[in-house]
Design a protein around this nucleic acid. Structure first.
Lengths: 262, 262
DNA sequence: CAGTGGTCTAGACCACGGG
DNA sequence: CCGTGGTCTAGACCACTGA
């Protein structure tokens, strides 16, 4: 157990009102912010911190748990505690569903990933008929049943997004949309072939902490929120033809939109 | 210390691989999800949980800290632990900066809040000249100095949003935009009067956990992420005339956008 | 193997809230 | 005042990692 480089972490002010474990978290946060521990670098071990600050191990662990919930660090059993690296983010542009992209014959996800030099992958594809939740039902104009298409997206092996598309069953039954692979251009291309020319999409964006399930399927580190995006597609007759509910790892995405000024 | 209603919380499976504190968190989470503890309801006290599950207090506290980081509960010193109420969300529509709204003479925030029956308030207003960060500078076309307008927004006394607007100094100096109160319709109305007719806005949306500073100014409960929205306003000549960097409590907002299909 | 983090205990004292 | 959560200690044993 090597001694800590002096001066890197400072000391505790025992006269302060601020709890000791918060002060330790503050010292570590400063050190990370100032680059004294770089991305991916290993922090001092718990026992080193115990010795350096002269506190019990639980106090040190309490401090580390603060930084973990802030998304600054992550711990690896048997190895140590590390400054969490920022993965590359994927930028979702507001024209990503423009018809001209669809006409290339590839899905929006594939095209974009390959342009960025990543290896795209789709996973856990499941298609089935369901009774819609009240929320989905309302968005789709109260169909009795819907076709649900679930799938997970990965980039270079890392899960980044989980999505479920819902379509009114009367519209999707016995069409390529009900097949696991709906063919080139994806379900939006098929919808247009079926006579539902797409007019516009509504998107709703929320952010929240993930459920335990979402932590598992997206392999989220703790302290990483998710972005939930609910998109409704409308055809030129004003009918809602699809609702897509997407949950994304917040540290893998930035969404970009363009708004007109008038 | 009353006995716990039997059957509400279940028991620990000591043969399970799953850590005891995670099992306790699972039981509590189920109970909340199934509505056995409603929004705002008080959970059993720590000592009641200690007795019910037959574990030490630290184990119980560990369980509660999981639920807290998931945003499900919040604790109040001296009172108890409560199911976190979901505050009403504010919906930001994609036409919120349309000129027709501006022409009413009120700010987008005020109009919308009053329509929703809330009491809007603006706070901590500070205007000053600054040297821009590299990021802001790049978005604004590399001005040497910028005018920065900082302010906090509250609804019914609750802080919901903190925003900083940056404008190229050569454009904003000695205009009403440099005044604390820029007048009816806000700075967008003034920009248009100065000959910068607005053409469109670019918005970038991110989600992340808040910094300790943001926790303080937005009075965020733990387990609540923030949405960061960076908006750039362009005039009809293609010049970037303003960048607005907004941080919002994620549980107070849902963002709505409309995308064209082609 | 030694060193790391993960889990858990059984205490202690404190600060806050409400009767 | 008592019950609540907030902080802290000083141990213990375990599971994982890498040499």
């Amino acid at each position: 157990m090597a001694a800590l480089p002096s001066g890197v972490l400072g000391v505790i002010d025992s006269t302060s009102d601020r709890a000791v474990f918060r002060q330790i978290a503050d010292r570590l946060r400063e050190a990370i912010d100032k680059g004294r521990f770089k991305e991916g670098a290993k922090l001092p071990s718990e026992s080193e911190l115990v010795e350096h600050f002269g506190v019990s191990r639980m106090t040190v662990r309490n401090s580390l748990s603060i930084l973990q919930s802030e998304g600054l660090i992550s711990s690896e059993h048997g190895k140590g505690v590390f400054v969490r690296p920022r993965p590359p983010v994927r930028r979702l542009a507001s024209d990503r569903f423009a018809r001209r992209h669809r006409e290339q014959g590839k899905s929006a996800f594939t095209v974009e990933a390959e342009a960025a030099g990543s290896r795209p992958e789709v996973d856990s594809l499941k298609v089935r008929e369901e009774r819609p939740t009240p929320d989905i039902s309302a968005r789709l104009g109260q169909p009795r049943k819907v076709l649900a298409r679930r799938r997970r997206y990965l980039l270079d092996g890392r899960p980044v997004e989980f999505a479920v598309s819902y379509l009114p069953l009367d519209l999707a039954r016995d069409t390529p949309i009900a097949e696991p692979n709906p063919g080139p251009g994806g379900i939006y291309a098929r919808l247009e072939e079926l006579g539902h020319r797409l007019d516009h999409f509504d998107e709703e964006v929320r952010a929240r902490m993930p459920s335990p399930d979402e932590v598992k399927t997206l392999r989220l580190a703790s302290g990483v929120p998710v972005i939930q995006l609910v998109r409704t597609a409308y055809d030129t007759e004003g009918r809602a033809v699809e609702v897509c509910d997407t949950v994304m790892s917040a540290d893998a995405y930035v969404l970009a939109y363009q708004l007109p000024a008038n």
